[in-house]
């Protein structure tokens, strides 16, 4: 996470700007090079490139390497994507193979199923 004030400003901008201009800050926590992790990275990048072209920041964290980050962010499941901005904060768990749910989680589409 970077400067909090800056984040807040961005969030506010996100609220008032048109949806398409919203800037996304994403953190993907993966577990090394496991199949699920690589799938998650691949799927997420594909989705982001399609829907959030040019307006997202994605950090990929290997929690094997940085267990303290997992600790700090309260990661239970892996892979987990944390959408820090725009608000509200969301956690997306899984290998991001269900595109509808990923889009719902990112707030890009209204959730159709529970």
């Amino acid at each position: 996470m970077t400067n909090q004030a800056e984040n807040f400003q961005r969030a506010m901008e996100g609220f008032f700007a048109r949806p398409d201009d919203t800037h996304y800050i994403l953190s993907l926590f993966i577990t090394g090079a496991t199949p699920k992790s690589t799938r998650a990275v691949k799927n997420l990048i594909a989705i982001c490139d399609r829907y959030l072209q040019g307006r997202y920041e994605l950090e990929v964290i290997d929690i094997y390497q940085q267990p303290e980050r997992a600790q700090k962010e309260g990661i239970i499941a892996a892979p987990t994507l944390i959408k820090t901005l725009p608000l509200p904060l969301r956690r997306l768990v899984g290998d991001m193979s269900d595109e509808d749910r990923v889009l719902a989680g990112l707030g890009l589409r209204v959730k159709t199923n529970v």
């Binding site: 892996a78 768990v93 193979s97």
Partner: peptide, 14 residues
């Protein structure tokens, strides 16, 4: 939001 297959490796690591 559950978006596919996952495990609890995060819990293990913590």
């Amino acid at each position: 939001e559950e978006t596919g297959e996952y495990d609890l490796e995060g819990l293990f690591i913590r």
